[in-house]
Simulated scan of single mutants.
Amino acid sequence: MRMIISGRHLEVTPGIRAHAEKKIGKIKKYFDQIAEVYITLSAQHVKTGKVHTADVLVYVNGSKIKAKVEDIDLYAAIDEVVDVLEKQLTKHKEKLRDNNHATGLKKFDYNVETGSITREKTSRIIPTRIMAKPMEVGEAILQMETMGKKFYIFMNAETEELNVVYKRRDGDYSHVEAGWE
C-alpha cells in the first residue's frame, strides 16, 4: 500500500506524518487490496478559529473510497477519518462478497462411478419478449435517446424485419439489419 501525504496551507511535520501513517495504515486489516492512499491535510482560518481537515482518497480494487473530516484538532481529524474509512471499507468488502455470492451460483454434481464431486457454475437464460412497433430508423434512434438506452430493437417499417440501432463509442449511431445470403 502506497501512502502519499500532502498538506494544504499546512506544513506536514514528521510528527504529523508519523501519526497519519500509523493511524491510516490500520485500514490494511479491513481490506487487502488497497493500492494507494492519498491523504491531504489542510488548515483553514474561520471566524471561530482554525479548522483542520483530513481528506483521504483510497484506491481499492479499481474503486475509489473517499472520506473527509473536519475538526479543530488535526490529530482528532485524522483519528475520525480512520473511523469513517473503516466503516466504508467494511461496507465495500461486504458488497463485493455479496456480489460474488450472487453471481457464483454453483451446482454440485456427484459421479457415482468415480465417487468424485465436481462443481460447475450455472448460468440462467431469462427470456424476454419485446413488442417491436414498425418505425423508421431515425424514429428508433430518437426513441433510444429519449429512453436513455444503449440500444433499441424495432421493426423496420420499410423491410418489416427486426432491426437494432445503437450508439457507438465515437458518438455516431449504427443500424443493424438482418440479412440472408
Score class of each variant (00 low, 15 high):
10 L>Y: 03
175 H>I: 13
50 K>I: 14
41 L>V: 03
69 V>F: 06
101 H>I: 12
83 D>H: 12
115 G>Q: 10
139 E>C: 01
33 Q>R: 10
96 L>W: 14
80 E>K: 08
46 V>W: 02
43 A>L: 09
8 R>L: 02
15 G>S: 06
155 M>V: 14
100 N>Q: 15
140 A>T: 13
149 K>H: 15
121 K>V: 06
119 R>N: 13
41 L>M: 00
33 Q>N: 15
113 E>D: 11
9 H>P: 04
154 F>P: 06
172 D>F: 11
84 V>P: 10
46 V>Y: 00
173 Y>V: 07
78 I>E: 14
87 K>H: 06
86 E>G: 06
98 D>Q: 07
175 H>L: 10
72 I>H: 09
136 E>W: 12
176 V>M: 11
96 L>F: 05
109 D>M: 06
19 H>C: 04
105 L>W: 14
58 V>T: 12
38 Y>C: 01
87 K>F: 01
146 T>S: 06
43 A>R: 10
47 K>R: 14
49 G>Y: 07
166 Y>S: 08
26 K>F: 07
25 G>F: 00
62 G>F: 02
170 D>G: 05
39 I>R: 02
74 L>V: 06
51 V>T: 04
56 V>Q: 05
18 A>N: 00
102 A>V: 08
82 V>L: 07
114 T>M: 13
17 R>Q: 10
11 E>N: 02
159 T>N: 13
113 E>V: 10
28 K>V: 03
89 L>S: 03
53 T>F: 00
108 F>A: 13
43 A>M: 11
164 V>Q: 07
64 K>E: 14
127 P>G: 03
113 E>T: 12
164 V>A: 07
168 R>Y: 04
115 G>R: 02
8 R>A: 04
123 S>T: 08
94 E>S: 10
53 T>G: 02
42 S>W: 03
127 P>T: 06
126 I>E: 15
136 E>H: 11
71 D>H: 15
167 K>Y: 10
132 A>R: 08
132 A>K: 12
105 L>S: 15
7 G>H: 05
99 N>L: 06
5 I>V: 07
